[in-house]
């Protein structure tokens, strides 16, 4: 069999160039870092550091709520790398706890939204009819509200309790997963490949695993990284305007607000949470592949 080259501007090429991968059937080097750009590696290490800080920080600096007014705005030292705040609390301890809380809430919210949205989307696309119509109506009602408003309404309901923030985040976000998964799945399910699988009696598990999942996975991954970023921002926005998590629980946005009055005396106090937020967002954006950047 000869490989052929038929370039056709304005048409579809008959066949493709013989690519090296086809000529030698050796398996490609399959290390986790292969095929990743420098930017992606940087983003990954930035995020890894952050996660490490969120996991180990609260263990190293346990006392985030202990006040000691005699240590008002103490500058950074070896024991307290970010000094003390206006109430004499350890800033690094508060930052570590706040980072852990933000990451945890955001990841939980996104995982819940992703699971619920994907499930609902696949069910809607598969079943059609009234199931599809009612799920779709529900999603449209939610999409008419700004996401931050949904989170805000929820947090206002129980006055900044953690579970309401989590529920608000998940509720605000499942809609986009639902709509994307529903649109993509209906296309795949209506295609000849799924029709053939039906005639071959391969069953629903096969269609999920071989047809839907490979098609949805890259999209979901991209959406999830965006979702985590926007959840963290939403949490800190609420904290910043003082209607998110209640003090004294440390939260990134809240820490920025609290540190603002002392910006001249202790700039590190407000810069530290900003740095955490920036690293998270840039890291998450940098993770994406070139393909999904379109």
């Amino acid at each position: 069999m000869t490989q052929t080259i038929t370039p056709t501007p304005g048409g579809t090429p008959d066949t493709t160039l013989p690519s090296p991968a086809l000529q030698n059937d050796a398996p490609p080097a399959n290390r986790w870092y292969s095929g990743r750009s420098t930017g992606q590696l940087l983003a990954m290490s930035g995020l890894a550091l952050l996660v490490l800080f969120a996991l180990l920080g609260p263990l190293l600096w346990t006392e985030h709520a202990v006040q000691d007014l005699s240590r008002f705005l103490e500058p950074p030292s070896l024991a307290d790398p970010l000094g003390r705040d206006h109430l004499g609390r350890s800033v690094v301890a508060r930052l570590a706890h706040a980072t852990r809380l933000s990451l945890l809430l955001a990841v939980l919210g996104v995982v819940t939204a992703l699971a619920a949205g994907t499930l609902a989307g696949i069910v809607a696309a598969w079943r059609g009819g009234w199931v599809d119509a009612s799920l779709n109506a529900m999603s449209e009602a939610l999409i008419a509200l700004p996401a931050i408003l949904v989170v805000l309404l929820f947090s206002a309901m129980a006055n900044g309790e953690l579970w309401t923030l989590y529920a608000g985040l998940a509720l605000a976000q499942w809609v986009e997963y639902f709509r994307m998964v529903r649109a993509r799945s209906s296309l795949v399910l209506a295609g000849p490949a799924v029709e053939a699988a039906g005639l071959l009696k391969l069953g629903r598990a096969h269609i999920l695993r071989r047809h839907l999942w490979p098609e949805l996975r890259p999209l979901l991954a991209t959406m999830a990284t965006f979702g985590i970023g926007s959840s963290i921002l939403a949490l800190s926005t609420l904290g910043f305007v003082g209607i998110g998590i209640r003090p004294p629980t440390p939260e990134l946005g809240l820490m920025i607000t609290e540190a603002f009055p002392y910006y001249n005396e202790a700039p590190w106090m407000s810069l530290a949470p900003v740095l955490v937020l920036t690293t998270t967002l840039i890291g998450l954006l940098g993770l994406r592949n070139k393909e999904s950047r379109a």
Binding site: P192, L200, K201, R210, P214, E215
Partner: peptide
């Protein structure tokens, strides 16, 4: 029980696109 089968005009569309043929 799958004893009724179909061949398609464009066979590339009748296989799951991103799965090696061996798995299909």
């Amino acid at each position: 029980g799958g004893r009724l089968q179909k061949l398609y005009q464009d066979p590339a569309l009748s296989f799951p696109a991103s799965v090696p043929l061996r798995d299909s």
